[in-house]
Nucleic acid binder design. Structure first.
Length: 238
DNA sequence: TCATTAAATTGTT
DNA sequence: AACAATTTAATGA
């Protein structure tokens, strides 16, 4: 977090409920947990707020307590390309935090969100002192590698229904986003923005997926009934 | 707590 | 892009 980041002004210590939404906390032994909790900061992010920007030096390792963030990158041609959404329970930036480099992407709030931050120094201290923390980070890196490979496949899919299905499946990843559970709070507009389709087309795709019983469409969110079906979506309809 | 109203979201053209 | 229908959130008695 940079001093000119709006979040910098709005940060505070986490409440007990917010701590429960941080998946790696419970993996720590008491002394390590105490140090981590002591350092953790929580901030409110409004839609459009930047959590971090490409090229800025890494100061915090971030996680989503509540809400929805967007991970994107600016290309050499000045275009912005969206990689993925980050739903509750997701933590990101450990790769760059480890190397103490600069952020390699932009993270923006898609809607009002609660963001947690752990200072890089504390992040490194935990790597040096906690085996549980190391396991978490390793698992996280491994799972995300799989996700990015899946993302390349998704990019090459022309069929909108499949794109929506597979993108949804990544957002429901229980390892990377344990805070999501069975119901993902996301509007069809937000999903359209992440997938890169019109809201109408996303609505149509969701209807198809609901008909085949993979999901249920709810007001302001989606319920997954069959995650495997979403992942292995091959060809349905047009 | 309930009823009314405003705002957000969805479904459809 | 626009519209109506539906659901939720906000307001105030």
């Amino acid at each position: 977090m940079h001093p000119d980041n709006p979040l910098y002004q709005r940060r505070r210590s986490p409440t007990a409920t917010e701590l429960d939404a941080i998946p790696w906390i419970q993996l720590l032994a008491a002394p390590e947990r105490e140090r981590a909790v002591d350092d953790l900061k929580i901030a409110d992010a409004c839609p459009g707020d930047y959590i971090c920007r490409m090229g800025r030096p890494v100061t915090y390792w971030f996680g989503v307590v509540d809400g929805l963030l967007k991970m994107s990158s600016d290309t050499a041609e000045g275009q912005t390309m969206t990689f993925t959404g980050v739903p509750p329970g997701g933590w990101f930036g450990e790769g760059t935090a480890m190397k103490r480099e600069t952020y390699r992407y932009n993270i923006q709030a898609l809607r009002k969100s609660l963001v947690a931050g752990l200072h890089v120094d504390t992040f490194h201290w935990l790597l040096d002192h906690s085996i549980g923390f190391n396991r978490f980070v390793m698992n996280q890196l491994n799972e995300r590698l799989g996700q990015f490979i899946a993302a390349r496949e998704i990019d090459r899919m022309t069929n909108p229904n499949i794109r929506v299905a597979r993108s949804l499946a990544t957002l429901f990843n229980p390892v990377l986003y344990p805070g999501v559970g069975a119901v993902l709070r996301i509007t069809q507009q937000e999903l359209a923005y992440l997938v890169g389709l019109s809201r109408q087309r996303v609505n149509e795709a969701l209807t198809v997926l609901a008909e085949q019983g993979s999901i249920r469409v709810e007001y302001g969110g989606l319920r997954v009934l069959d995650l495997q079906a979403l992942r292995s979506q091959v060809f349905q309809g047009k």
